Computed example of a mutant assay.
Amino acid sequence: MTPVELSRTVLHAVRRAVDEGELSVTVPARAVVTPPGPGGWGDYATNIALQLARPAGRPPLRVAEVLRPYLVGAEGVVGVEITGPGFLNIALESAASGEVVRRILRDGPTYGHSDALAGQVVHLHAPHEVRALVVLDATARLLRSQSAHVRTTCDAPPEPEWRAVLGVHVDAYGDIIVDSSDHAVTIRPTATRTIPIPLSLSRDAARWALLHPAAHDRPRITPDHLVQRESNPLFRVRYAHARTRALTRNAADLGFTADPGSIDVTPTAEHLLPALADHPRILTTAATHHAPDRLARHLVSVADAVLPLLPTVLPRGAEKPSAAHRARLALAEAAGTVLAGGLSLLGIDAPEHL
């Protein structure tokens, strides 16, 4: 579907809402659709709800909620999410096709890596503070995944335990002269209240605790990051990955393997497919904005989207493996691949058994 065709689809949704008496507005001549901005989702976004809010006499968010069901049911649309004050983010069927799954399985953990920042030289500098250094390390990984050349420095040498426990490494420290041709960035997120606290957690839990919150938010360093239950986002991400790997092993025992084939956009896959297709954009955005927290939140979204799919992957009882089972297995494996690759960029392990 082209942007022009999608614009017509959006207008058709408005017209249907008007015909059904859910909106009282004049249908505009044009609906603007653009690639999603930061914090967006899917393939395209439209501000039509904000445009119609005043004539409709309703808040933009409410207008978006009225329009969403009409868009979800439109041909070629596989998912619609509302973000911000009322932007409608739309994922298209072409982005959710088996081709995306094939690409993920082909590229493996490097799916989403690109040359978007090739030729760019970035100098990342951090103060002598543990969270700043962990964010610097993850940001450097993201930038390198987009082919940027990265140099990292710090005011003073990292503490030995920061290197040993958190895997922190910088290229140089002290008074550093920055080349005028470099793109210089100082990483200065809101610090932890006391430096030693993150070291009370495991390496993976500590890194997640420092990377998952946005840079302006103060991280919570508590034992909650270690608990193995659904309330812990890191556990959900790693558990979802481990479950996908277990499904691959179990399917092999049953004598079948993954085949993307024709992937049905069932309710359980409605949110997963667009999230997988959106992964390359997330990596580029997180790298460009020096914001590994965007990747961490995206991984939580992928995990939450794949978990409902997993019970449907294997045949039940005397049921024989079918093309649908093979396609679902391919989709699950693709999700596991994205989770593993994303965790690696955050410097966190993705165990196959949990």
Rank of each mutant, 00 (worst) to 15 (best):
T2H: 03
P3W: 03
V4W: 02
T9F: 02
V10Q: 05
A13F: 05
E20D: 15
S24Y: 00
P35C: 01
G40A: 07
Y44E: 01
A49K: 02
Q51W: 04
G57M: 06
L61Q: 09
V66A: 03
P69E: 03
L71F: 00
G73Y: 01
G73L: 06
E75K: 14
I82K: 03
G86I: 08
N89G: 01
I104E: 06
Y111T: 10
Y111D: 11
A118G: 11
Q120C: 09
Q120T: 12
P127M: 12
R131I: 13
L133H: 12
L142G: 06
C154K: 04
P158I: 12
E161W: 14
W162Q: 10
W162M: 12
W162Y: 09
R163M: 14
V170E: 09
A172W: 00
G174D: 09
S180D: 15
D182W: 12
V185N: 06
R188W: 07
P189R: 04
R193F: 09
L199N: 10
L199M: 11
R203S: 15
D204E: 13
A205K: 01
A209V: 14
A214D: 15
A214E: 15
P223E: 01
S231C: 00
S231T: 00
A240Q: 06
H241N: 07
G255H: 03
V265S: 11
V265N: 14
L272C: 09
L273E: 07
H279D: 06
A287W: 04
R294N: 01
R294S: 04
L299K: 01
V300K: 00
V302M: 00
P308N: 08
L310C: 07
K320T: 15
R326G: 12
A330K: 07
L331G: 03
A332R: 04
L339I: 08
A340D: 13
A340T: 10
G341F: 03
L346H: 08
L346V: 15
I348V: 14
A350V: 10
H353G: 07
L354T: 05
